[in-house]
């Protein structure tokens, strides 16, 4: 149990002298521990991935070599920790190009494979690598499978990354992928494919992006793409209305992988008001939206925007009066802030007492 805590300290170094000691004395211990774990096949995947994260953060060649070895062996390739590990390899990281090049011929599966594609896209975008490692027939077959996967939530991030990689692929090879991406059932993939189409010189996809701006469920992604392409003026005026922006905010929150993973099928404004909000100690506009998923067991709920965007899934429903929902969110935010006014247990009564005291 102490090991993860100790590893965490390798990521919390705030002075040069301590960093020197950690790299001279600490990292070699972790290299040896990693090598030993591999040689005797006593693999605790959680510990190993935490060690790899430390290696990635410290940016040494010895560490990067071990990350490459673990990736080639496909150790725990489904774990989301691989995203965290490879995210460290940005354009500032001294081993990014080494890592990308050393893994270019390895078939990487699961989260690991997707994270590798995302890294390759990023490094290709800034010109850190000249040839995209997915510009091969074998990798194109893998990307085609990701785009065609019917279980779209499982491979949504992969499909988005494939769509983003298209400007860096040989055009003949990428043509079929582009057609698949533009026709993908997820608008998130279609938007990314539209951006790639534009970057490849076909400006006709611009109107597709503008159209998605007007749908609050995908507006945030479409607007970000327009900004990325330098077309801020193309955002329709109605998309800047506070109610619309608040709806888009909640849709983005609900779309996070650890929430529903996609925006709701329906979303409606339930209430909006200006009130003194105790958790932030200021006067602000807040919104409540009821949302619905057609195919989900829990079918829907209520979300709040204006302070901390979130939905207390399972606690609030659209049957509750708006004041009760605000009361529960108020309790929740105060608890998360460690505020001395926070009640021990969340309840409508405790929240209402707090909100009413200031309003």
């Amino acid at each position: 149990a102490a090991f993860p805590v100790l590893l965490g300290l390798f990521e919390s170094i705030v002075c040069k002298e301590a960093m020197h000691v950690m790299q001279e004395q600490g990292l070699p211990l972790l290299y040896a521990a990693f090598d030993h774990a591999l040689s005797c096949e006593r693999l605790d995947a959680d510990d190993l991935l935490l060690i790899l994260k430390v290696f990635a953060i410290h940016g040494t060649r010895d560490g990067a070599e071990r990350i490459v070895r673990a990736a080639q062996l496909g150790i725990a390739s489904q774990r989301t920790m691989w995203s965290v590990i490879l995210e460290q390899f940005d354009e500032e990281h001294p081993q990014s190009v080494f890592m990308i090049n050393r893994l270019k011929d390895s078939l990487l599966l699961g989260t690991l494979g997707i994270a590798y594609l995302q890294r390759a896209n990023r490094l290709a975008a800034v010109g850190a690598i000249q040839r995209h490692p997915f510009d091969t027939d074998a990798r194109c077959r893998q990307m085609t499978a990701w785009l065609r996967d019917a279980d779209h939530l499982r491979h949504l991030q992969a499909a988005i990354a494939v769509a983003a990689s298209l400007p860096y692929l040989d055009q003949t090879r990428g043509r079929d992928l582009l057609a698949l991406a533009l026709d993908h059932h997820s608008p998130c993939v279609q938007i990314e494919a539209a951006v790639s189409t534009i970057r490849l010189g076909n400006l006709s996809a611009r109107k597709l992006l503008i159209r998605w701006c007007s749908d609050p469920r995908y507006s945030r992604i479409a607007m970000r793409s327009l900004r990325f392409l330098g077309w801020v003026d193309a955002v329709p005026a109605g998309c800047c209305h506070p109610d619309f922006l608040a709806t888009a905010d909640l849709c983005q929150w609900l779309s996070q992988p650890n929430e529903y993973g996609r925006p709701p099928d329906r979303i409606e404004l339930m209430d909006t008001r200006v009130l003194y909000w105790p958790p932030t100690d200021d006067l602000r506009q807040v919104w409540l939206f009821s949302y619905h998923y057609d195919d989900h067991e829990c079918s829907g709920g209520v979300g709040m925007v204006g302070s901390v965007t979130c939905s207390l899934i399972g606690e609030t429903t659209s049957d509750l009066p708006a004041a009760d929902v605000y009361a529960l969110h108020c309790c929740c935010e105060l608890q998360n802030n460690g505020d001395r006014r926070a009640p021990r247990y969340r309840s409508v009564k405790a929240g209402k007492t707090l909100v009413d005291r200031y309003n």
């Binding site: 102490a2 300290l9 170094i13 002075c15 002298e17 301590a18 950690m22």
Partner: peptide
Amino acid sequence: NVSTAEEATIICDTVAVLLA
């Protein structure tokens, strides 16, 4: 946070003991 070389040394020694 690890803010001195001494603290870093203690952590490394602890890791060494733990891994041994």
